[in-house]
Every structure is written in C-alpha cells, then in structure tokens.
Computed example of a mutant assay.
Amino acid sequence: MRQKPTVLAREIVASSRIFRVEQVQLRFSNGVERVYERLVGRGTGHGAVMIVAMLDDEHAVLIEEYCGGTDTYELSLPKGLIEPGEDILAAADRELKEEAGYGARQLEHLTELSLNPGYMSQKIQVVLATDLYEERLEGDEPEPMGLDKINLRELASLAQNSQFTEGRALAALYLVRDLLTQRGVFVP
C-alpha cells in the first residue's frame, strides 16, 4: 500500500448548518505539496444508510423526493442518517418505514459506498431489505414521498431515466441484482 501524504495543516474555511469545507495542506512522499479542499461531516459521525427494499424476487422500492442539490424531484432508494446509538440495520428499518411505508423482517448489510471520495468524507451503508410488510413511521420529510418500483431486469433503462441520477443508488441496485442472481433468488 502506498504511503499516505503527510498533513501539514488543516483548517475549516467555510461552514454551514449541514456542511463544513476543510482545507488540508499535504506533502506527498515525493516532496510535492498540495492544498486539497473537502466536504466533511458536522462531527456527528454516525453515518447514513441506503436501503434496497425488495417487494418480491424482482421488484425494488423507489421513492420520489425533492432534492435541493438538483432542484428537482428525483427517484432514488430510501435512505437517511443513522441516529446516535442506532445500529445500521435498525436505522435501515426505521428509514424504510419513514420514507416508503414498509418494514422488513430480513435486513442484511451489504457494503459501504462513497459518493465522491476526492472531495467528500461521507459514506453510506447499503442494506438489503426483504420480506416486507406495511408499516409507516413519522419521519422528518417535509412532504410525503412518492412511491414507485423498478424491476431488476430494467436497470439499464433506469440509468437512462432523467429523474434517476444518483450513482450510489444505481450501484446498489446492480449489486443486489447480482447477489440475488448468485443466490438463485432472481433469474435474469
């Protein structure tokens, strides 16, 4: 493994209610120095979850919500922050109930994904939820989420849908499709 650069200085150069921008001065092993900027969390450090909730052997739940970053309504997977003291699977079940109106009898942590590791420190835990049942919890969303579904056979068309742009969600869906195929649950 390569030697990580030496940190010469760190400074928060901008801050908001949600984001902090950290400037990091680095020296690489070859002597080259650079200043990087990255978005860092607000110090809660509890992380986030993204849930691939399977309605049956081939259909996953999608939600539709307003996204401030793109200023549009987008389709994605249910997701949210892990609360203090909450484990990944409990957070996934809670977020699924809040955003999609389903609970899951079976939850499995699959992997951790990042959005843009060059500029962001945040990562998200991907959870597979199966054996769903209807149950809704009150969440922190400003309006009810729209609900949709996607057949795992149609992921290529989903990638072409202008209302579905989140790369992590697409990666999670492909991961689940491949996993369920390997297990003999899903037949492509």
Rank of each mutant, 00 (worst) to 15 (best):
E154Y: 09
Q106L: 12
A169T: 02
R153V: 03
D57P: 00
L128M: 07
L107R: 09
Y174Q: 07
A100W: 08
R153A: 14
L75N: 03
Y73Q: 02
S15W: 00
M1F: 11
E95H: 08
T70R: 03
R20Y: 03
R38P: 00
V24F: 07
L55I: 12
E83R: 15
L55T: 02
H59C: 06
E166Q: 13
E143G: 01
L8W: 03
E74D: 13
P78A: 07
A104H: 06
V52D: 09
D148H: 13
E64S: 08
E22A: 04
L155D: 04
S157L: 13
Y36L: 14
L89C: 12
M50W: 08
T181D: 07
T165H: 12
P78Q: 06
T111W: 10
L26E: 13
L26D: 06
D87V: 05
I12V: 15
D93T: 00
R38G: 01
R42K: 14
L62C: 05
Y119F: 11
E98Q: 13
V61R: 06
A60I: 01
L173E: 07
A159S: 14
E37Q: 15
Q25M: 04
V7T: 12
Y133R: 09
L175W: 00
G68L: 09
Q163K: 15
A48G: 06
L81M: 10
N151C: 14
R136P: 00
C67E: 09
Q163E: 09
L8Y: 05
P78E: 01
L132H: 11
S162Q: 12
V49M: 02
